[in-house]
Simulated assay, not measured.
Amino acid sequence: MKSSAEDLRKRGKYEQADLDALSSLDSSLLFEKINSCMPAERSAAVHLLSERKDIDPEYLTDLILQRLSVENSLYTKIEICSVLEKGGCSTAKKMTAYLGKIGQNQYTALPDSVSKKKSYPLPRDIIARSLGKMDASVLPVLLDVLMSGDASAVSEVLDAIGFLVFYNPQSATPENLDAVLSALTKFSDNDLIQWKLMICLSAFPLPKSLDILNHVIETSEIPIFREEALRSKNLTVHRH
Rank of each mutant, 00 (worst) to 15 (best):
K186A: 12
L143I: 02
P111K: 08
L68S: 06
R231A: 01
T91S: 09
L84Y: 13
V157F: 02
T61C: 15
N105F: 12
K93I: 07
L197H: 01
L122Q: 14
F163S: 12
G87H: 06
E156G: 02
Q104Y: 14
T219E: 13
L139G: 02
S232L: 07
I34E: 06
A203R: 02
H240G: 15
W195H: 12
L19M: 03
T108G: 07
K116Y: 04
D18Y: 06
R52D: 05
E15T: 11
P123H: 04
T91E: 04
S119H: 11
K53E: 14
L142S: 05
L131H: 10
L99C: 11
M134R: 10
S3A: 08
K233T: 12
T236S: 15
L184R: 15
R124P: 10
P140W: 01
M1P: 14
P39V: 00
R226H: 03
A5G: 00
L230P: 03
E221M: 09
N176R: 06
A44W: 04
E85C: 15
A44M: 02
M1S: 08
L48S: 11
L25K: 14
Y75D: 04
K94H: 13
G103K: 07
K118N: 07
S27V: 07
S4E: 02
L146A: 05
R42M: 05
Q66P: 00
C37L: 14
R226I: 03
